[in-house]
Deep mutational scan, measured.
Amino acid sequence: EAHAAIDTFTKYLDIDEDFATVLVEEGFSTLEELAYVPMKELLEIEGLDEPTVEALRERAKNALATIAQ
């Protein structure tokens, strides 16, 4: 499951495998979680700032909209 989540994140969020791995290690496994989890939870991840989190959430929401079509 972790590998599938990493693949999904790299494909749809335009991030590298290392960043995707950090997200999975922090407990995220779906685009929905990244799109809708409280921003505070993402900001608790070391190295993430508000602009990065906002961009990540926007990419996740856009990916979900694209997949739904």
Score class of each variant (00 low, 15 high):
Glu1Arg: 06
Glu1Lys: 10
Glu1Pro: 11
Ala2Leu: 12
Ala2Ser: 11
Ala2Trp: 15
Ala2Thr: 11
Ala2Glu: 10
His3Met: 14
His3Val: 11
His3Cys: 10
His3Ser: 12
Ala4Lys: 14
Ala4Tyr: 10
Ala4Met: 11
Ala4Trp: 11
Ala4Thr: 12
Ala5Gly: 05
Ala5Thr: 08
Ala5Pro: 06
Ala5Val: 12
Ala5Trp: 08
Ile6Gly: 03
Ile6Lys: 06
Ile6Glu: 02
Asp7His: 15
Asp7Ser: 11
Asp7Trp: 12
Asp7Tyr: 13
Asp7Thr: 11
Asp7Asn: 13
Thr8Ala: 10
Thr8Ser: 07
Thr8Val: 12
Thr8Ile: 14
Thr8Lys: 09
Thr8Arg: 13
Phe9Arg: 01
Phe9Met: 03
Phe9Ala: 00
Phe9Ile: 02
Thr10His: 05
Lys11His: 09
Lys11Asp: 03
Lys11Gln: 08
Lys11Thr: 07
Lys11Tyr: 13
Lys11Leu: 08
Tyr12His: 06
Tyr12Ile: 05
Tyr12Pro: 01
Tyr12Ser: 03
Tyr12Arg: 02
Tyr12Gln: 03
Leu13Gln: 00
Leu13Cys: 03
Leu13Asn: 00
Leu13Trp: 01
Leu13Ala: 01
Leu13Pro: 00
Asp14His: 13
Asp14Gln: 12
Asp14Lys: 11
Asp14Thr: 06
Asp14Glu: 11
Asp14Asn: 13
Asp14Trp: 10
Ile15Met: 05
Ile15Gln: 01
Ile15Pro: 01
Asp16Arg: 06
Asp16Cys: 06
Glu17Lys: 14
Glu17Trp: 13
Glu17Asp: 07
Asp18Cys: 08
Asp18Leu: 11
Phe19Pro: 00
Phe19Arg: 04
Phe19Met: 12
Ala20Leu: 02
Ala20Val: 03
Thr21Cys: 07
Thr21Gly: 09
Val22Gly: 04
Val22Leu: 15
Val22Gln: 12
Leu23His: 00
Leu23Thr: 00
Leu23Ala: 00
Leu23Tyr: 01
Val24Pro: 00
Val24Arg: 05
Val24Thr: 06
Glu25Gln: 15
Glu25Asn: 15
Glu25Leu: 15
Glu25Ile: 13
Glu25Met: 15
Glu25Arg: 15
Glu26Val: 14
Glu26Tyr: 15
Glu26Phe: 15
Glu26Thr: 14
Gly27Arg: 02
Gly27Ile: 01
Gly27Ala: 02
Gly27Trp: 03
Gly27Tyr: 03
Phe28Met: 03
Phe28Tyr: 13
Phe28Gln: 01
Ser29Met: 15
Ser29Val: 10
Ser29Gln: 10
Ser29Glu: 07
Ser29Phe: 15
Ser29Gly: 07
Thr30Asp: 04
Thr30Asn: 06
Thr30Gln: 05
Thr30Phe: 04
Thr30Glu: 03
Leu31Tyr: 00
Leu31Gly: 01
Leu31Glu: 00
Leu31Ser: 00
Leu31Lys: 01
Glu32Asn: 07
Glu32Gln: 10
Leu34Gln: 00
Leu34Phe: 06
Leu34Ile: 15
Leu34Thr: 01
Leu34Ala: 00
Leu34Lys: 00
Ala35Lys: 02
Ala35Tyr: 06
Ala35Thr: 06
Tyr36Asp: 07
Tyr36Met: 11
Tyr36Gln: 09
Tyr36Cys: 07
Val37Ala: 15
Val37His: 10
Val37Lys: 13
Val37Phe: 09
Val37Trp: 10
Val37Asn: 10
Val37Gln: 09
Val37Ile: 09
Pro38Tyr: 06
Pro38Gly: 09
Pro38Ser: 12
Pro38Glu: 11
Met39Val: 12
Met39Tyr: 07
Met39Ser: 09
Met39His: 07
Met39Ile: 13
Met39Arg: 09
Lys40Trp: 13
Lys40Ala: 12
Lys40Glu: 12
Lys40Gly: 10
Glu41Leu: 14
Glu41Arg: 15
Glu41Asn: 12
Glu41Ala: 12
Glu41Phe: 14
Glu41Gln: 14
Leu42Lys: 04
Leu42Arg: 04
Leu43Val: 06
Leu43His: 05
Leu43Lys: 05
Glu44Asn: 13
Glu44Asp: 11
Glu44Met: 14
Glu44Ala: 15
Ile45Val: 07
Ile45Ala: 03
Ile45Ser: 03
Glu46Pro: 14
Glu46Asn: 11
Glu46Phe: 15
Glu46Lys: 13
Glu46Leu: 15
Gly47Lys: 05
Gly47Phe: 07
Gly47Trp: 10
Leu48Lys: 02
Leu48Asn: 02
Leu48Ala: 04
Leu48Pro: 03
Leu48Gln: 02
Asp49Gln: 05
Asp49Lys: 04
Glu50His: 09
Glu50Thr: 09
Glu50Lys: 12
Glu50Val: 14
Pro51Asn: 11
Pro51Ile: 12
Thr52Val: 08
Thr52His: 06
Thr52Asp: 06
Thr52Arg: 09
Thr52Cys: 07
Thr52Tyr: 07
Val53Tyr: 06
Glu54Thr: 15
Glu54Ile: 15
Glu54Gly: 08
Ala55Cys: 09
Ala55Ile: 10
Leu56Gly: 00
Leu56Pro: 00
Glu58Asp: 08
Glu58Ile: 12
Glu58Cys: 12
Arg59Ile: 04
Arg59Leu: 07
Arg59Asn: 06
Ala60Ser: 04
Ala60Val: 08
Ala60Glu: 01
Lys61Gln: 09
Lys61Val: 08
Lys61Thr: 06
Asn62Thr: 13
Asn62Asp: 08
Asn62Gly: 09
Asn62Cys: 10
Asn62Lys: 15
Ala63Asn: 02
Ala63Lys: 03
Ala63His: 04
Ala63Pro: 00
Ala63Ser: 04
Ala63Ile: 07
Ala63Tyr: 05
Leu64Cys: 02
Leu64Gly: 01
Leu64Asn: 02
Leu64Ser: 02
Ala65Val: 12
Ala65Gln: 10
Ala65Met: 10
Thr66Trp: 10
Thr66Pro: 03
Ile67Ala: 06
Ile67His: 06
Ile67Trp: 04
Ile67Lys: 06
Ile67Leu: 11
Ile67Cys: 05
Ala68Lys: 11
Ala68Ser: 11
Ala68Trp: 07
Ala68Gln: 12
